[in-house]
Design a protein around this nucleic acid. Structure first.
Lengths: 408, 408
DNA sequence: GAGTATTCGTTCAGGCGCCAAACATACTCG
DNA sequence: CGAGTATGTTTGGCGCCTGAACGAATACTC
């Protein structure tokens, strides 16, 4: 059977009881992240003993990640009341930055998921040089760091979202067609332009991070496998399987926009024909609705206004886009076997006009739809998903391995 | 075995040191599966202490999963020579069964991956009733069990591969379009028809199992993320990410055959239009090459003969199928970010005539191809992949949790 | 050929983490 | 106010890994 020696990273690592402790600490913290609870409740929820939970909570309190809340008011139940333990908002924060075609934005999110700071620089970035844009982004980060310090938040990491293919190993933005960028070492440039003293930063695709944002903040109960389709000028997909983002081995996954849906369709920037992006992307929708794709910040409200007014051309444009989009989504669903699809980015506000066409198209093309219906829903965070997801991705390290973070 | 009442399967489970032991036993066994080694070498490879490895090996020997081999001949190195420890072939075996359109087959595979028994019943199954077919399959299993006993192999499990959508929870074959079956409780029926005393059996899609077969036996060095595209009358895909098969949450994944590649194409059995299966499946290829799709067992050799003879019509048919197939593969690659694609099933023998068209089509449509080339290769196990994978999937349980298997 | 160096496998305390049970605490109920 | 119940902590015990020490088996050196 020769399970190939797999020279690479795939070698399974051994465990020891320190790892057990770390793992269980993460389990406890996870339980507390869902909702404040007493130690006994945590024990019941996780399957650990009260003794173990007590000891872990003690350690987490010492590390400043959780705090004891005042005794809960009596609830009419017999027995000694428990004292709730909750995440400490000051225990950690993450900074998220999004670089996108129509502007930059940044947020600070604390350990409980609250947005504590928010800033943005709107404006079309397509004309600007990468270096210039990233200097602006670095300034947003510096501001966010300052603000975090003012609020007594300890920033654990920075997440940067970009609209393009990211090489995770090299931490380089390989290509962002809609920005016209290529091979840009985003993190390096930003750090160089910043005031220094930054916590560790990571770079990822905006659709991926948006999906994480939805996973952690969206409160889509029970949906721990879903795809977030992020519509914009381009169309990306963030794939979450069993509660884990699936980036692909090289960070190049989720390129839904370049799925072929019309082999004889218009030529795409990527060189192929009939890419989904060309018949369901924002530019196509705008053109098809008789609006100018340029000056996007005005164009989207104009589109929505036209739709609200019942403009037939606009309604049909969006419906047609929905049909094409459904083809792409059906492909996703057939391949990944996922039962929930979230429409994000520009698709979120367009949802009411997309819904029918998308659902019809999906139902017709998904083989398993008869046994298990596919739910297509609008994203909850909308355009914020990527920045928030980026900020939270930094915090996930804390939640996933609290003891490791405290020790490191 | 599992503790927690687990309302939802996604809740993270706590660990204790018994789990540590089990995990480390699996790590040790995995190291030994790759190649026989001494305890000291296992320790070096895994990072565990010699003391720990010694104790685990002792336990595995007691359980009959591994054996000490004679002292290795002196190798000119100083120091006391180690005694190699290796998987014990008799430590366990798996039975694989494949039910397919053109026949049934079964194999017995032992713990080291050797095929110890092989049997098949060729013949078109499309006309036969499910019950009848499954009775034949059950007989193959009974024979395989008898043969295993004769060879002193302890059968740990049975894997059944079917060409269709499988509901993993219910262990029901939901639909197999090319067999014309629907909602068949395959395992139940087989067990009822068998002589009894069967070890636990599992049901899965043939493309999935073929992918596992390739993963474990293919020796595609380094490729622990790949897609196996299994061509036949239908077209399925088995997706392996980071060395783990991705079935989808409900076992409905990998339906590459019903990807839309030609929206205006012919109508498919599934109800949609332009499914890949319709323009790259075996029936289409045969028709397009001027051969009768019926009587398939003869048709494929005829096709190959025609290709060998340079028959233009046949060559073009396969080439065209390759182009369409490339569209589907490009979709897979864009979405999953995978750099290796294996062509299996009927595509394996057709590979020489498919290669060019597929690769060209893929390269044109995969966004990341410029940075990371996509390798399209024929599968190594060919038509055997699914049966062998099915047999091995039973053995994986042993390798993944040896102590658990021994205890249970 | 004897002594030394090196490597292998085992044995033995030591530490750590979990569990089970007992205990102290705090509240409800009658 | 006492009985009953649930929470949180303490204690003893066990299992597992580690590190060091030890015997065993081989090669190297003089």
């Amino acid at each position: 059977m020769s399970i190939a020696p797999t020279g690479s990273s795939r070698r399974p690592r051994p465990t020891d009881q320190a790892e057990v402790r770390r793992h269980n600490a993460a389990v406890v913290l996870e339980a507390l992240a869902a909702r404040p609870r007493s130690r006994a409740q945590v024990a019941a929820a996780t399957g650990l003993t009260r003794a173990t939970v007590g000891s872990i909570v003690e350690e987490l309190i010492a590390g400043g990640l959780v705090t004891e809340q005042g005794t809960r008011e009596p609830r009419g139940r017999v027995g000694r009341p428990g004292t709730d333990v909750a995440l400490d908002p000051a225990g950690g924060a993450g900074i998220g930055v999004e670089v996108n075609v129509d502007g930059l934005s940044a947020v600070v999110v604390d350990l409980v998921g609250e947005v504590r700071h928010r800033a943005s620089r709107p404006g079309d970035q397509r004309g600007r040089r990468a270096g210039e844009v990233l200097r602006s982004a670095a300034r947003l980060v510096d501001d966010a760091l300052a603000e975090s310090e003012r609020q007594g938040l300890r920033v654990r990491g920075i997440g940067v979202a970009v609209p393009g293919l990211v090489d995770l190993d090299a931490e380089v933005l390989r290509v962002a067609p809609n920005l016209g960028w290529q091979d840009v070492p985003v993190l390096e440039r930003m750090a160089k332009a910043g005031r220094g003293g930054w916590p560790p930063a990571t770079l990822d695709n905006e659709a991926n991070l948006a999906a994480l944002g939805e996973l952690w903040s969206g409160g889509h109960s029970g949906a721990d496998s879903f795809v977030l389709v992020n519509g914009d000028v381009g169309v990306g997909a963030g794939v979450v399987l069993d509660g884990r983002l699936h980036r692909g081995s090289r960070g190049f996954g989720g390129e839904l926009g370049h799925l072929t849906v019309a082999p004889d369709g218009p030529e795409c920037r990527c060189g192929a024909r009939g890419c989904l992006e060309q018949v369901a992307g924002l530019d196509w929708i705008l053109r098809s609705a008789g609006l100018e794709p340029r000056g996007r910040s005005d164009a989207v409200p104009a589109l929505l206004a036209a739709l609200d007014a019942g403009d037939e051309r606009a309604v049909r444009a969006v419906g047609d886009a929905g049909t094409s989009l459904g083809v792409g989504i059906a492909a996703l669903v057939n391949l990944f076997d996922i039962d929930t699809v979230l429409l994000g980015g520009i698709y979120a506000p367009l949802y009411p006009w997309l819904e029918k066409a998308v659902q019809a198209s999906v139902d017709r093309r998904v083989l398993s739809a008869a046994w298990a219906p596919i739910a297509v829903r609008p994203s909850r965070l909308g355009r914020d998903a990527a920045v928030v997801g980026a900020a939270q991705s930094a915090l996930r390290d804390v939640l996933a391995d609290p003891l490791g973070v405290l020790a490191g």
